[in-house]
């Protein structure tokens, strides 16, 4: 109703423009509207500029200087910081860590969540309780979860060790073995964020019209065929949304890493964002942290653009 009224208002208040030529802000009404527009948008734009765009621009500047965040003078080094980062022996490892963390965390979160959502979408007893349990870690703070998991993962007295021993295996030294630290961080990340993805998938599943399943059934489609040709296309916008937001979130995951491993052992869990923190706020090297931020921003931007373009063609929107 509201939509109708406003459309009507617009129709009546804005008759088709008269033929006389006018400047862009010709009439008093238009100037008025322009002012109103500025008044409404201004505060938001101002905040965006101060807290988002300005730091972005300033970071770009910092990536060209050498500065310890305290000295009154910032020394201009041109592309020196870029060269230093790209030729640093750590850089390759950090990129590999970031990519492997992202692939593992996104892959596991999105696929496990889909399985759980399909299960919880069935009319099973106790599914409301199960949904709540699965969702609950989402509400906890990453730092608190990290601390609890340090104890769970300890190979000497941890809960997980008890479970692993029960099946006749030995627990690895999760957080102190460079080969196992990344899997440990991925497990905790997935455990924390799975519930969110499940809820989004459930909403997506429930939005798929029942008639489509009924029609497929009448056509003699098997379970798999219905999943492949009705559920998957129906869920594709939700999947797209989840994959994209999870990728962006994993690029920025900091709390769990900081609390559980401090980026170690021996850089095994140092991702781009953690490296940025280390360089900027432990080493107080604003230039190197600035370059890292530029790389991270560039990666996220390119990734988002490619994905948007690619998925727009593939995703089925009803």
């Amino acid at each position: 109703m509201f939509l109708n009224t406003s459309s009507q208002t617009r129709l009546i208040q804005r008759p088709s423009p008269p033929s006389r030529p006018r400047s862009r802000l010709g009439s008093a009404t238009e100037r008025h509207e322009w002012l109103l527009f500025l008044l409404l948008v201004g505060p938001n734009l101002g905040l965006f500029f101060i807290f988002t765009y300005w730091p972005l621009l300033y970071n770009g500047y910092l990536s060209f200087v050498r500065w310890d965040l305290l000295a009154p003078v910032k020394l201009w080094v041109g592309l020196g910081n870029y060269q230093e980062l790209f030729t640093s022996p750590d850089f390759g490892k950090i990129i590999t860590n970031t990519i492997s963390f992202t692939i593992a965390a996104v892959g596991l979160t999105c696929s496990l969540a889909l399985l759980l959502a399909l299960l919880l979408n069935q009319p099973l007893r106790g599914r409301t309780v199960a949904r709540s349990i699965i969702f609950s870690p989402v509400m906890l703070s990453g730092a608190a979860i990290g601390i609890v998991w340090i104890y769970i993962l300890d190979p000497r007295y941890g809960l997980l060790d008890v479970l692993i021993r029960a099946v006749g295996l030995r627990s690895p030294n999760w957080l102190l073995d460079p080969h196992w630290a990344m899997p440990a961080v991925v497990i905790v990340y997935v455990w924390k964020n799975l519930g969110y993805a499940v809820v989004i998938y459930l909403a997506g599943l429930q939005a798929i019209p029942r008639e489509l399943y009924e029609a497929a059934l009448v056509d003699g489609a098997s379970n798999w065929a219905r999943f492949r040709h009705v559920t998957i296309p129906g869920l594709s916008p939700v999947m797209f949304f989840l994959v994209l937001t999870t990728i962006l979130a994993t690029f920025q995951t900091f709390d769990v890493i900081k609390v559980m491993t401090n980026g170690g052992p021996v850089d095994a869990t140092t991702t781009l964002i953690y490296y940025l923190y280390q360089e900027g706020f432990v080493g107080f090297n604003a230039g190197r942290a600035g370059v890292t931020a530029v790389v991270l921003f560039g990666a996220m931007l390119i990734f988002t653009m490619v994905q948007m373009r690619y998925t727009q063609r593939k995703v089925y929107y009803s």
Partner: peptide, 17 residues
Amino acid sequence: PNGDQIIGKGLERITVQ
């Protein structure tokens, strides 16, 4: 700057790795 952590990482490389 960061000397403690630079040496610490080196020591992790020998004790852990």
